[in-house]
Design a binder for these strands. Structure first.
Lengths: 96, 96
DNA sequence: TTAATACATTTAAATGTTTCGATGTGTTAT
DNA sequence: ATAACACATCGAAACATTTAAATGTATTAA
């Protein structure tokens, strides 16, 4: 089996997943069927706008979500392919 | 088996996976067929003994590895069940 | 018993992360 | 054009993590 992600990427994605607020953001985006907006995330999570912006940046840089600009709003989609590759890479620890 | 992980556990495991040295330790334990010793990990990873001890503690506390004392040596096993539950939980983001 | 080995713990320094207030940039509405 | 909205960035404080030197504990060997 060809490993799509290298360990540096696994580290980065794990770091991105290692924060409760970011996990909440991911769950929110996931529930919304892969979409969401910063402004509505502020209603769900008890953080200021700059903090949410920071966490979203980390998720985007890890590749877990993708931003789509629509006028002055931003929509976010979960990168399901990356989630799959990440869990594959972690699971590969079991049989390498 | 039935036990699914809660998000607090997912956070903790992700944090444990979010460090290159800990990923190397896990790979080493994994390669050795689920076993290894601190002293041989020191040959593979460029860290002092207290640092390795610290990282192993974090992996144990996350539940990713289990320690087995054998005299003055310690053997470590990958908790394959937990790895499975972790990847299941992360993958669940795709369809919740 | 004494010495050596394997690992844990404590302490402290360096470094990284999280968070928010202030402010900046681009977009839409009036 | 002006105001309001959505989001990004900067700067700084608070907090957490990483690392190693020093030291401690338990086990085995001589």
């Amino acid at each position: 089996m060809i490993m799509a992600l290298n360990w540096k990427q696994v580290e980065k994605i794990s770091k991105a997943l290692g924060d409760s607020n970011r996990l909440k953001i991911l769950q929110h985006i996931s529930k919304k069927g892969g979409c969401g907006q910063c402004s509505e995330i502020q209603d769900v999570i008890d953080l200021t706008q700059p903090s949410i912006s920071h966490h979203i940046k980390i998720l985007v840089e890890a590749g877990l979500i993708e931003a789509e600009k629509e006028g002055r709003h931003h929509k976010y989609n979960l990168n399901e392919q990356l989630v799959k590759e990440y869990t594959n890479a972690v699971n590969a620890l079991k049989s390498s």
